[in-house]
Design a protein around this nucleic acid. Structure first.
Length: 896
DNA sequence: CGCATCACG
DNA sequence: ACGTACGTGATGCGC
């Protein structure tokens, strides 16, 4: 992604420069060089190098998409004999020859740019720098906003209020924006002083000599004092340091010459008109063959993505300035009439709500914005009678009246506080936006509108907000349609959001006294452990500080550090476990860590969230990359279970109604079953069809023994393999997990894939497919884009491959669970029962004992049959008075 | 605010 | 030679 400093973005918007024509100038040589060294040397199938093409074009297309230039041009050096060599024979003498793989790529690049209709500029005897300076000068005179992209810091001299320089950072995938302010932050220099800086310090890559012995630090100090090269030379007597003084005197001429060399020439003998640089949309019929000629599949994908989105949104972006929908003011009578009219409306109302946070779920609504058919309205609690507001809330609960909202779950929660509810959601913009782009993080109405109207900066009123949402809604609808996400949105995510609202409102019962008691016990042990640790370490320190702990263990006590983190010694549980026998303090620290976690995150954390004997989590529906839910404030999806001590904590969770039981149901091996379904691997499918223990069967296959001969160790290894499969198996991961040598884990994996060749084939195909499409989908069409697959860094690319293997599996499991939740919520309506929590593959309900049998049966059957796969789905139920004391429970459909 | 750590599926 | 299992959220430290 293109990154710019936050400062500049703000600055650009404040100045309203979007109204000025925007020109992008790219330094072809500099960027090509950067790309060449930053990217691995990719080639076409017949061996022509293409990494520069890939890097440069990727950047070009991103800029095109993100910046929407009105003008653009790429400048190239034509370096046979530059003007500067006439000035100074040594100029660029040190520069190394263009490397083998790079040189031909300039020709390829120019050829492609020509097909793209991207204007290019070069002039014999001049460098790209000078052309850029000349174009910039002319463009400034025309009142344009100019962005120069280069890796060459010389360009900083061009900075002005209208011209910003974007310097490539690492490689070329990131750029850093410099304007006057940013330059000052970095160097405390004005733009025109850049040439003085070069004049003094020189530049080895261009072989500009500068003054010997003067580097960046000295040069800056001098310039802060005397401003220019001339100023410094005139005051050479006064500078501190004899050596420096004499250097400045001796090399005065060389400094002046260096400054001249560093000055970009704005006067060049070239007739050009800015009209030549007008941006023209590249034509698919020319672009695609040109990219294809160099096997640039990734670039093609990027271009097509942009292009197709563009085609759809072309008029959008062009005409997508928001219309002002007049705000209708209504009297009491007016409101009642209007609401009555809307009660029969077939046209969707777009609603948005402002509210204050109160102690209750969600809060209290303050005002509504309504937009429909080119008009907008504001309804505020303060200004309307209770009669109007009653009528209004009734309208919200009318399923027949279609409604478009940004966040229907929150709205439903708000209404729930007044015993009202939301019905008739026809389009949830936040959920739509998440399905289109799961990596998004912000879903406020403003963010949602900005997606299509980027220059927007704030809404003046809530009525305007509603009008804006109403106008972007069709764009979202179209995108959802184009991406094939309609069903997922309307049959899963939207209905689910109201189920989640119910769950959040219900909350889960919590025994505060017991929790406090639990905390007191921990506190005592914790104090004792703390003292023991200080005694054993013979010093007191903050045990919660990994830094201090590392110092004590690895310096004071002289233990041998096994691992390092970027900031110092690693002290995580895995590392400490290795050191357990090395020093008695280690065990105490491990115990301390465990208890401290329980105390701070769970005891204190949960106590802080308790309200009237309940805890209400918030389920996030637009956070994860795979389609799972997440749970926050507090997170009730990570309550301890693996270790007994933490597991005890589950005793405090109970039903919200007295006498009710907790009923849990979890999918058994859902991810492996989905893998079986996807891969159709005969062994894996058979294993599930026969109801075998899948890990035991896997062990039998991998170790080549009968089911009866599988030892617990073999099963453990097989389980780790199965586990790893879903994540994108690696030798490293498996060896670490099992604590075995790489060779051994490699052997297991080989054996596994020999037997389960269908799984192997599936995983290979999904990765290949992902590389082609740049994305994967779940069984329900949920989409995840995987830019990591095309990352310059190999580690990132491999991560991309594992994501491609994992996401369809994890995501489909999430889809199935969501579908089941909707059906379960519906199915248990006639009974005294409620869904309380979802923990990815588990649902937790509460139920009146009398309804247990029926509800458990409905629960199990609904979950198992929510979406039949080619292997059976199994759900295990448990029941108990609290979340700890849960006993297996098999509902059966025998008639009573 | 990023990092390290650790809780869950 | 390098750095790696997939997906989350909360806490505390230290810059």
């Amino acid at each position: 992604m293109l990154e710019t400093s936050g400062y500049d973005i703000v600055k650009c918007e404040e100045k309203g420069v979007f109204t000025m024509p925007k020109m992008l100038i790219l330094d072809g040589n500099s960027l090509a060089n950067r790309a060449f060294y930053a990217l691995p040397l990719l080639t076409t199938s017949d061996g022509r190098p293409t990494n520069v093409l890939q890097g440069f074009l990727t950047m070009l297309f991103r800029l095109e998409q993100e910046q929407h230039p009105d003008y653009w041009v790429v400048a190239f050096d034509k370096t046979k004999a530059t003007v500067r060599i006439e000035q100074y024979a040594g100029y660029k003498a040190q520069r190394k020859a263009t490397p083998e793989g790079l040189r031909p790529q300039f020709d390829y690049l120019k050829e492609i740019l020509a097909e793209l209709d991207v204007p290019m500029l070069e002039l014999a005897g001049y460098e790209a720098d000078d052309l850029i300076a000349a174009v910039t000068k002319q463009a400034e005179a025309q009142g344009m906003q100019i962005q120069v992209y280069t890796g060459d810091r010389d360009a900083l001299q061009l900075i002005s209020p209208k011209t910003h320089i974007y310097l490539t950072k690492k490689g070329i995938s990131e750029v850093e924006c410099y304007d006057e302010h940013a330059l000052w932050e970095r160097y405390q220099l004005r733009p025109h002083q850049i040439i003085d800086l070069k004049g003094l310090m020189g530049d080895t890559s261009d072989n500009i000599p500068g003054v010997p012995g003067v580097g960046e630090k000295t040069a800056l100090k001098l310039l802060w004092e005397y401003e220019t090269v001339e100023g410094v030379l005139a005051n050479a007597e006064k500078v501190s340091g004899k050596k420096l003084q004499s250097s400045l005197k001796e090399y005065a001429d060389q400094a002046r010459l260096s400054k001249t060399l560093a000055t970009m020439l704005t006067e060049i003998p070239l007739e050009f008109s800015l009209e030549d640089f007008i941006y023209r949309r590249p034509q698919a019929n020319k672009v695609l063959p040109a990219l294809n000629k160099y096997d640039l599949r990734n670039v093609t994908r990027i271009w097509q993505e942009r292009h197709s989105k563009d085609e759809e949104a072309r008029q959008d972006t062009a005409e997508m300035s928001l219309a002002t929908w007049p705000v209708r003011e209504l009297s009491e009578e007016g409101w009642l009439t209007q609401i009555k009219q809307w009660q029969n409306s077939k046209t969707a109302l777009t609603l948005t709500c402002r509210y204050e946070r109160t102690g209750l779920q969600g809060g209290r609504w303050l005002e509504w914005g309504v937009a429909v058919s080119g008009e907008s309205f504001k309804l505020s609690r303060e200004e309307v009678s209770s009669k109007v507001s009653e009528a209004w809330l009734e309208l919200l609960a009318n399923e027949q009246v279609p409604k478009i909202l940004a966040d229907s779950k929150t709205v439903d929660l708000l209404l729930g506080n007044e015993n009202k509810c939301l019905k008739g959601v026809s389009f949830d913009l936040g959920l739509a936006s998440y399905l289109i782009q799961a990596s998004r993080t912000k879903f406020t109405p403003l963010d949602l509108v900005k997606e299509y109207v980027p220059m927007l900066d704030a809404f003046d009123s809530i009525a305007e907000e509603a009008a804006a949402l109403a106008q972007v809604a069709p764009k979202y609808q179209k995108d959802i349609e184009n991406l094939g996400l309609e069903d997922l949105l309307h049959t899963i995510e939207e209905p689910l959001s109201l189920v989640l609202a119910q769950m959040e409102r219900q909350g889960i019962g919590i025994d505060i006294e017991q929790l406090k008691h639990f905390g007191e016990g921990i506190s005592i042990t914790l104090k004792q452990l703390e003292q023991d640790i200080y005694d054993l370490a013979e010093s007191s320190f903050n045990i919660n500080s990994p830094k201090q702990l590392g110092t004590i263990l690895f310096e004071k006590l002289g233990l041998v550090a096994a691992k390092k983190t970027k900031t110092g010694y690693s002290t995580d549980a895995e590392t400490l476990e290795e050191l357990r026998s090395a020093h008695p303090v280690i065990e105490k620290i491990l115990d301390y860590r465990q208890l401290n976690k329980l105390m701070s995150t769970y005891v204190n954390g949960l106590l802080a969230q308790e309200k009237e004997g309940r805890i209400h989590t918030t389920f996030q529906q637009t956070v994860t990359a795979t389609g799972r839910l997440s749970s926050t404030e507090p997170n009730l999806q990570n309550i301890p279970i693996r270790l007994e001590q933490g597991r005890q904590l589950r005793k405090i969770f109970h039903a919200t109604e007295p006498g009710y039981l907790l009923l849990s149901a979890d999918y058994s091996q859902i991810e492996l079953r989905i893998l079986a379904h996807y891969s159709q691997d005969p062994l894996l499918c058979e294993s599930f069809a026969l109801g075998q223990d899948v890990h035991t069967r896997t062990a039998a296959e991998v170790f080549g023994v009968s089911l009866e001969a599988v030892t617990s160790d073999m099963r453990r290894s097989a389980k780790a393999v199965n586990f790893g499969l879903v994540y994108g198996l690696t030798e490293f991961g498996l060896s670490r997990d099992l604590g075995i040598p790489r060779k051994e884990s490699k052997f297991y994996i080989e054996q596994y894939f020999k037997r389960y060749s269908g799984v192997k084939y599936y995983l290979e195909s999904i990765v290949a497919q992902a590389k082609q499409d740049g994305q994967v989908r779940t069984l329900f069409n949920r989409l995840r884009r995987i830019p990591e697959l095309y990352h310059a860094n190999r580690v990132q690319r491999q991560l991309g491959e594992r994501i491609a293997m994992n996401t369809p599996v994890q995501g489909t499991a999430a889809d199935i669970m969501k579908l089941a939740m909707i059906q379960v919520a519906e199915g248990i309506k006639p009974y005294r029962a409620a869904v309380l929590l979802q923990v990815h593959d588990e649902l937790l309900l509460q139920v009146a004992p009398e309804d247990l049998k029926k509800v458990a049966l409905i629960l199990k059957e609904t979950m198992e049959n929510a979406f039949p796969l080619s292997v059976p789905m199994t759900v295990d139920c448990k029941v108990g008075p609290n979340w700890y004391d849960m006993k297996p429970y098999q509902p059966n459909d025998n008639k009573e």
